[in-house]
Design a protein around this nucleic acid. Structure first.
Lengths: 352, 352
DNA sequence: GTGAAAGCGCTAACAA
DNA sequence: TTGTTAGCGCTTTCAC
């Protein structure tokens, strides 16, 4: 059976040569069999496969990759794994890569540019076949590395800016604008903003910019805002909502725009627990369109960030480029975020 | 600056030799500088570093790993990334590995043994320094591979069974027993069970077994049960709760035990929305202790699975073994799951 | 259909 | 402190 079970003590890892000797077939042919390359007679193929299984041989990809200068790894570099959004992007990436030889390898940056640079460097040192990386904002060094890597690079989530190579995402500015317009159309006037205290979350920033821009055109502005960092987002949503509402009792807010669905859900619960009429007294909206929202007592208005689709499209770009060296570079795919009114944002008062 | 920016067109990836030529220092010494190994004069060190930066050189770990037969990768093989529990395990693993040269590489199995086997094979073919893998149940082939790999293997989450090498986790049987005892002590009698339809989730199964075992000792048994698969767990929790309660109206249930916190949260919301007195009319409990629960209108009783701690301990075992070849193998660490009564499970009626 | 020779880009071990 | 010589385990290439 396996190397460990009996005869041979597990010391030196097995090599092709061991399989070659055990099967009486040359290393080269063993290699061919194991990779399903070239013509090999059924007889030798069987001999080799048997010997390999018998020994418990696991090929050494390090050596293989060095010799062939082909590495079937795709580096995926994202800020975090704990906020529901990136796991969904991963789902999309996996869906596509499962149909290929390519394997995703994930690196986490925690929204820190210098960490991103380090992770990218580590990843590139394994000479992956491609890179999928969140965002368009990177250190100069990171951009230089990606520019010089000579492999397909896909920047995801965001298309408001300059891509190194390809990009797939939504315009967060546009998402912010769209939400602002819906809120204005519904007749809300005193709008509060609640978000994360993350100067480095460029996408949240861009949404905010688009949002305020449209408000300004309607002669409105954010009436008050509240920021948090760390902790249970649901709980923070509650707490911030309570704080911002209490702070504005003399001149009450009539809408709360949350920078993500989780704090939005917390806010919704706070309102419901306190008998606040949503969306009558106050409207609410989040961002992301996480599946989770379906289970809430009332469906939160949100805007879908097309996460799975972004993952899929990004992986497809890489797969295509790996398959065909001459596939076009610099492809930019802008998805359209869709607004879900849920049950916490009134529809437009009157048609335009 | 970088290779791409100007003079040299990005074609062949840069090698040590390029840096060697650019700096007029031997390849060997360049290698030493880049790895901070051995004594190198400050002068040459500077020359080399400058040349490397100038060219935008990124070392080739494939070649390095092959030459040194050292790979600073730790394979982490887990069933899923989308249920809050494994991201937390990852947090623990990262915390520890960040202090070392080691890098985690994650593979996802979707609770499928054959997928696990394939992922393991892929991972081992990169000759990682260690493996952290969820669960104690694997295919025979997978166990053989791990046995023969000659690297530290840590099976995590569960300690009810035989480990290949080391293990860190809780006893899920014990967790089930403990929860059953608390429920019985609180005086509940008609207990419903709600869980996932996942024959391959061995840990859920073991909890269930421990749970029913203790009920049996108290001459009780599960009055009814409900299972789901896929979809929004929160929503499913609601739906299943409604279904199981309606189905038992003539002889009402007084406790619902959920196999995870997310469906438990859905059930809690259902009860609150429908004016059911929790934990008076009916008690509720989940499993996992996810941070998320803090934001609910009422804190759900749960049992902490020690996820971050498990990740930390597993990573520490690997790190120790990598550092010291002769560190002991076969270490088993059993953590104690702690019961959190929250606000949905009454305390014991009277002291024993 | 099969095998032999020559590296892939780096590092261990030794020499200078 | 620095350089030289052999590989690491595979695949490429070319010969048979």
């Amino acid at each position: 059976m396996s190397q460990g079970s009996g005869k041979t003590p597990a010391k030196r890892p097995l090599t092709l040569r061991d399989v070659s000797e055990a099967s009486g077939v040359s290393e080269m042919t063993v290699s061919r069999v194991l990779r399903n390359r070239g013509d090999v007679s059924e007889a030798t193929r069987t001999k080799v496969l048997e010997a390999a299984r018998e020994l418990g041989y696991v090929p050494n990809k390090i050596a293989g990759a060095l010799a062939s200068s082909r590495v079937n790894l795709v580096a995926v570099i994202i800020p975090s794994m704990s906020n529901m959004v990136f796991p969904e992007v991963m789902t999309g990436i996996n869906e596509v890569l499962e149909g290929t030889e390519l394997q995703p390898v994930v690196g986490i940056t925690n929204y820190k540019p210098e960490r991103e640079e380090a992770v990218l460097y580590q990843m590139l040192s394994w000479r992956p076949s491609g890179v999928i990386i969140a965002g368009l904002e990177h250190t100069e060094a990171a951009k230089a590395m990606m520019g010089a890597a000579g492999i397909p690079i896909v920047e995801i989530m965001d298309t408001d800016g300059e891509a190194v190579d390809s990009a797939v995402g939504i315009s967060h500015r546009r998402a912010g604008r769209k939400m602002a317009q819906a809120i204005i159309d519904a007749g809300y006037k005193r709008i509060g903003f609640l978000g994360t205290k993350m100067p480095l979350d460029h996408r949240a920033r861009k949404r905010f910019e688009g949002f305020t821009e449209v408000l300004a055109k309607a002669k409105l502005e954010i009436a008050d805002s509240e920021f948090y960092s760390g902790g249970s987002a649901l709980k923070k949503g509650r707490e911030m909502t309570e704080a911002i509402l209490k702070r504005n009792e003399e001149e009450p807010l009539d809408f709360l725009y949350y920078s993500n669905d989780m704090i939005g859900a917390g806010g919704l619960m706070y309102c419901l627990d306190n008998g606040i009429d949503v969306p009558g007294d106050i409207g609410l909206a989040g961002f992301n369109g996480i599946e989770f929202l379906d289970g809430l007592p009332r469906k939160l208005a949100t805007m879908d960030a097309c996460r799975v689709e972004i993952g899929r499209a990004a992986a497809e770009i890489i797969a295509k480029r790996v398959e065909d060296e001459k596939a076009p570079t610099g492809e930019i795919i802008t998805l359209e975020p869709s607004l879900d009114y849920g049950e916490t944002l009134k529809r437009k008062k009157k048609p335009l």
